[in-house]
Design a protein around this nucleic acid. Structure first.
Length: 372
DNA sequence: CGTGCAATAT
DNA sequence: AATATTGCAC
């Protein structure tokens, strides 16, 4: 059984794109929020394109399908472009490793031009590759390690409520990091977070489109012991990925504000302060690129090295739409397989998968990559 | 309140 | 040394 919501799925069942594209657009427009709209468009678009790839094999048998798909894609692309143009234009930022041999205060123009890198050819740098591989294994958005008796693992979670997927998905089960008092269980008041009341609380498709319906992360309770200091929280690659994506949609790290970012990320339990902190760090590594000549709306989310998908999702070429997890092990609400694990320890229970925190330094990209 | 910056902790 | 948390001033 597919755990994905019908509407979430990009599968070609009848439920996919319930109405016409036109209607879809209308619906989406009703939402008001531009970036939200962009997200949805993106998601659908991706789905269509994947579909296109699949069909491509049979294009001779299904010429009309091709035609229709193509048509839809074009239409959506246009819409998407408009949307993005209106909302955000491609944000160009370059990553600046902390270890600058020396601080160059001079204009970074000359240097930056050729740094429009795509690091597609990760084959070359074993290091990067290895890192990526490691990141793949991280299953959680973040972890609360140590003595939390709570689950930090949504895997468990999945197994537990797999009987009722929907519930699991939509519901935020956050908790209040600070306000939680030891005495009670405080798990009820978090529904506030979910915006979009009437509309589609879980409308968009899979995880590749990122935001929206993020059942992930979660954690725990009183992490601040009586010592007062909060548990140090690591940013898993996945979490960071969302972060970066949010940044992109908000117009770059230098204009996005913590709150916005947090809201866009839709990760429950994540606090403003945490985002703020991460942002601060991020900004240290990031500098505005002077000019943006590009007009292509697709820079967003693909071309930029720091935007998630290509960076971590690398092998997302797989045309499996059903797998809501672009990066392998991320098996949140995805599927049924959780139950079948033989009694013992589940495979995915790597005990060392625990702290795969995001590491800024490992993201230093190779200089001198040629760009398109 | 939310944001940015800086000091501080791990 | 790097990165998250906390405090403080707008």
């Amino acid at each position: 059984m597919g755990l994905v919501h019908p509407e979430l799925s990009l599968d070609f069942r009848p439920t996919f794109i319930p109405k016409t594209i036109t209607n879809f657009l209308k619906e989406v427009s009703l939402n008001g929020n531009v970036s939200d709209k962009a997200l949805k468009l993106d998601a659908i678009l991706k789905g269509l394109e994947e579909e296109m790839k699949k069909i491509d094999t049979f294009k001779r048998e299904l010429p009309l399908c091709m035609l229709l798909l193509n048509d839809a894609i074009v239409a959506l692309k246009e819409e998407s472009m408009q949307c993005m143009a209106k909302n955000v234009e491609p944000i160009l930022e370059e990553f600046i490793p902390l270890k600058n041999k020396e601080e160059n205060d001079q204009s970074e123009e000359d240097g930056s031009l050729n740094t429009t890198k795509k690091e597609e050819d990760s084959n070359n740098n074993c290091n990067n590759y290895k890192d990526k591989k490691n990141w793949m294994r991280s299953v959680q958005l973040w972890n609360a390690d140590a003595d939390d008796d709570c689950y930090t693992d949504h895997t468990l979670d999945n197994k537990r409520n797999h009987g009722d997927p929907c519930k699991n998905r939509g519901g935020a089960r956050a908790f209040m990091p600070f306000k939680a008092s030891l005495g009670f269980a405080v798990r009820k008041e978090e529904t506030k977070e979910i915006p979009v009341p009437g509309a589609v609380s879980c409308s968009v498709t899979n995880d590749q489109s990122n935001f929206r319906s993020v059942p992930l992360a979660v954690l725990s309770n009183q992490q601040q012991q009586q010592t007062g200091r909060k548990q140090r929280r690591c940013w898993s690659p996945e979490l960071h990925r969302r972060f970066v994506n949010a940044l992109q949609h908000l117009g770059g790290s230098h204009v996005a504000t913590p709150k916005q970012i947090r809201e866009l990320m839709q990760v429950d339990g994540l606090t403003n302060d945490e985002v703020k902190s991460h942002l601060q760090k991020y900004r240290l590594h990031t500098r505005r690129l002077p000019a943006a000549t590009t007009q292509s709306a697709f820079v967003l989310g693909s071309a930029h090295p720091w935007t998630s998908q290509d960076q971590y999702g690398e092998s997302s070429k797989t045309s499996s739409l059903q797998s809501a997890s672009p990066q392998g092990p991320l098996q949140l609400a995805t599927n049924t397989r959780g139950t079948s694990t033989t009694g013992g320890d589940s495979v995915e229970d790597d005990e060392d998968a625990k702290s795969e925190c995001y590491s800024w330094k490992s993201h230093v990209q190779e200089p001198g990559k040629t760009d398109v």
